[in-house]
């Protein structure tokens, strides 16, 4: 039997009908058309389905939509400015060539946002520690770490 839930997704209130077994990832992608969060490993090892739940990073493919009723969800789509401009972290990823195939990028950028919101000037070690649950098969991570570092340097304290 479907259940009604309420989620605030990227600042917009949504009333949704979901099956108990529906994962948050599938609800975001299929019901709301937000395809930024990706389905990777399905068992919580790759981080490509990362979204922010009430501001904190979680894996949307390991989360039942019914279990997060009433929460606030931020996906990569929610980082765009109201005028459609890219978020400074997104700009920095582009500038540093931190995006190749793009599959890990939404998760990486949300982890970067979560880190920089709490700790505006992290060390390289803290950056690497924070993205340790996000796998990238293309870049070798160097450009990703540089991109995050650059945002932390240019941001005013």
């Amino acid at each position: 039997m479907k259940k009604q839930i309420a989620l605030t997704v990227n600042g917009v209130k949504r009333e949704l009908l979901v099956n108990p077994q529906d994962l948050l990832l599938n609800v975001l992608r299929e019901q709301l058309g937000l395809t930024g969060a990706k389905y990777g490993c399905g068992i919580g090892e790759c981080g490509s389905c990362t979204v922010l739940l009430d501001g904190e990073p979680i894996l949307s493919c390991m989360t039942l939509a019914v279990a997060v009723n009433g929460s606030e969800v931020t996906t990569i789509e929610g980082l765009l400015g109201s005028d459609g401009s890219l978020h400074p972290i997104q700009e920095s990823f582009l500038e540093h060539g931190a995006v190749q195939c793009g599959f890990c990028t939404p998760g990486m950028i949300l982890m970067a946002k979560n880190l920089l919101d709490k700790n505006p000037h992290p060390s390289e070690e803290e950056i690497r520690e924070h993205i340790r649950g996000n796998l990238c098969r293309c870049t070798g991570y160097t450009q990703i770490v540089q991109a995050i570092k650059e945002v932390s340097l240019t941001r005013k304290a």
Binding site: E56, N114, R132, G133, N134
Partner: peptide, 9 residues
């Protein structure tokens, strides 16, 4: 344990 995401769940 795991990763920050896992530790938040």
């Amino acid at each position: 344990i795991g990763s920050p995401q896992i530790r938040h769940l």
